[in-house]
């Protein structure tokens, strides 16, 4: 078969020559077909090839390193405990901690304790969401509101919410209200600020495009502004959860009372009172695991999904 084609302008089908400059009329259909084919070719050439990272690679590059690091730390800890650097009541090994937790488990209280904290955290976070979102929208969109409370709101974010605990106890006594007040004061500012940041970073082009499409007023907020601000909003939520959880632990640690159900903070405080260092470390690990677990199971996938859908996240 012919492998190369050389154009030598001979024969009736040769291009150029002294024929008309534009394609002969009537060749319209052929021209349109040609254009469609050309376009299909361009589309195929320019479309980035989608690729998935194989599961084995994800395991090797993403899962293996942190697992190895945790195992290393545990091993070093166990060694230090066995070398008796400190008396056991000050430095129990990881196995002692595990046993202390197992003991709580057999007493049947630990799940209830975790649930108490998680449900408080979730409820407080939901309330913060319901307050922080409209608040953030107001600050982002209404100049007067922004001038009035914008600085206070971002300032509040740097105030450790544990500072509110004494005030809340004076207001509400040792009740759930105290705990929720502290959680709200911790989480609302970061959720609102996240939304403000997200709205501020919305490219003006989207807003103009939305307006020409007829998305004005509330429809503009719903169809353009909020979805465009979603990445910033989500990172605000993630931070808001971290703040909720921290504030909750601070509140539970300080507000200990028989009237309040036992949460992880109270478990920790009780263990301290009993000088049970294994249980203290066990409670700390539980607090850490629950906090990280919710972030990894709820917020990380949500954020990844949103960013990936917009092509803002490199695969792999």
């Amino acid at each position: 078969m012919a492998s190369t084609e050389t154009t030598t302008a001979t024969g009736p089908s040769a291009p150029g020559g002294d024929g008309p400059e534009r394609p002969v009329p009537g060749g319209g259909d052929r021209a349109a077909d040609g254009l469609a084919g050309l376009e299909a070719g361009l589309d195929a050439l320019e479309t980035p090839a989608a690729q998935r990272t194989p599961a084995g690679r994800v395991l090797r590059t993403k899962v293996l390193p942190p697992v190895a690091a945790v195992l290393l730390v545990l091993a070093a800890w166990q060694l230090a405990a066995q070398a008796d650097l400190k008396p056991d009541y000050m430095l129990p090994g990881p196995l002692d901690v595990w046993n202390a937790l197992a003991e709580e488990w057999y007493r049947g209280t630990i799940l209830g304790t975790v649930w108490n904290s998680v449900s408080r955290g979730a409820l407080g976070f939901a309330a913060s969401l319901a307050i922080g979102t409209p608040l953030g929208l107001l600050v982002a969109r209404v100049g007067f509101v922004r001038a009035a409370i914008g600085p206070v709101l971002s300032g509040l974010q740097s105030l450790p919410s544990v500072a509110w605990v004494p005030a809340a106890i004076i207001w509400f006594g040792l009740t759930d209200a105290t705990i929720y007040a502290v959680v709200l004061l911790g989480a609302v500012p970061s959720i609102a600020n996240g939304l403000v940041g997200g709205v501020d970073r919305v490219p003006p082009l989207y807003l103009r495009a939305g307006r020409t499409l007829g998305a004005t007023g509330l429809r503009g907020v719903r169809h353009v502004l909020l979805p465009a601000a979603l990445p910033g909003y989500l990172s605000g939520l993630k931070q808001g959860w971290a703040f909720s959880w921290r504030s909750l632990m601070a509140a539970e640690l300080i507000a200990v009372s028989p009237d309040l159900g036992t949460g992880l903070g109270q478990l920790l405080e009780n263990a301290r009172v009993l000088q049970d260092m294994s249980l203290v470390l066990g409670a700390i690990s539980l607090i850490l695991v629950v906090g990280i677990g919710i972030e990894l199971l709820v917020f990380a996938p949500l954020e990844r999904r949103v960013l990936r859908g917009r092509g803002l996240l490199a695969r792999g």
Binding site: L205, Y206, R208, A209, T212, V224, P227, A228, L230, V306, G309, R310, G311, L312
Partner: peptide, 12 residues
Amino acid sequence: ALMFQEHALFPW
């Protein structure tokens, strides 16, 4: 209707 130099499609 208005078309821009940048496509201005909504990435979400």
